Measured scan of single mutants.
Amino acid sequence: HEITLHINGRRVKLRFRDEKAAEILKEAAKKGLDEEELKKLAEELWR
């Protein structure tokens, strides 16, 4: 699955395995994680 989040006016595509991962990524984006941090988090969730 993929999700596209808008971060600092940019579109960031993240891959994720399940809905739980999608929710975690959305929450992290709301908390203000930047693009690099979100990509790292997405990679961690993928494993």
Rank of each mutant, 00 (worst) to 15 (best):
R17K: 10
E35Q: 06
K39V: 15
G9S: 03
K20Q: 12
D34H: 10
L14A: 03
L14Y: 04
W46F: 06
V12A: 01
A28T: 03
A42Y: 04
L45M: 10
D18T: 12
D18H: 05
R47T: 14
L41W: 04
R15K: 12
K26G: 06
G9F: 00
V12I: 13
L45A: 02
K40Y: 10
R47S: 13
I3P: 00
R17D: 04
I7K: 02
A42P: 00
E43Y: 06
E23M: 12
H1Q: 11
E23N: 13
K26I: 12
E44N: 09
L45E: 01
L38E: 00
A42N: 04
R15V: 07
E23W: 06
E43W: 06
K20W: 13
L41Q: 02
L5F: 07
K40T: 12
D34M: 10
E36L: 12
E19L: 11
K30T: 13
K30W: 06
A22I: 12
K31Q: 14
R11K: 15
E44Q: 12
L33K: 08
L5R: 01
R17Q: 10
H1S: 10
H1N: 13
L38M: 13
I24K: 09
E36Q: 10
N8H: 06
E44G: 06
E2W: 15
I7W: 02
L25R: 00
E19N: 11
F16Y: 15
E2F: 14
K26L: 14
F16L: 06
N8D: 10
A21K: 02
K20M: 13
E35S: 07
R47I: 15
E35W: 12
R15D: 03
I3D: 01
A22E: 08
L41M: 10
K40W: 11
H6R: 08
K40V: 09
D34Y: 07
V12D: 00
E35P: 09
R47Q: 15
I3E: 02
L14Q: 00
K20P: 10
K39D: 04
E43Q: 07
A42Q: 04
R17P: 07
R17A: 12
H6W: 07
K30A: 14
K13W: 01
K26T: 12
I24F: 07
E36C: 09
K13I: 14
H6K: 07
K30E: 12
K30L: 13
L5W: 00
R15L: 06
R15E: 05
L33H: 08
E23H: 14
E36R: 11
A29T: 05
I3C: 04
G32K: 04
E43F: 06
L33C: 06
H6S: 09
H6Q: 11
I3R: 02
D18I: 03
K13C: 07
I3Y: 02
E2H: 12
N8Q: 08
A22T: 04
E37V: 08
A28F: 07
E23F: 06
K39N: 09
E35L: 13
L45Q: 03
N8L: 04
A22M: 12
L25Q: 00
N8Y: 02
K30F: 10
D18A: 03
I3H: 02
E35Y: 11
D18V: 03
K31N: 14
E27P: 00
W46L: 05
G32S: 05
R47G: 13
A22D: 02
E37H: 13
R11H: 15
A42I: 05
T4D: 09
R11C: 06
A29R: 04
A28I: 04
L41K: 04
L45H: 02
E36T: 14
T4R: 04
I3N: 01
V12F: 03
K20E: 11
A22V: 11
F16C: 09
D18N: 09
K39H: 12
K30Q: 14
E36Y: 13
W46A: 03
R15H: 07
E44S: 09
R17I: 13
A21S: 15
R47V: 15
W46N: 04
H1W: 12
I7N: 02
F16W: 05
A29K: 03
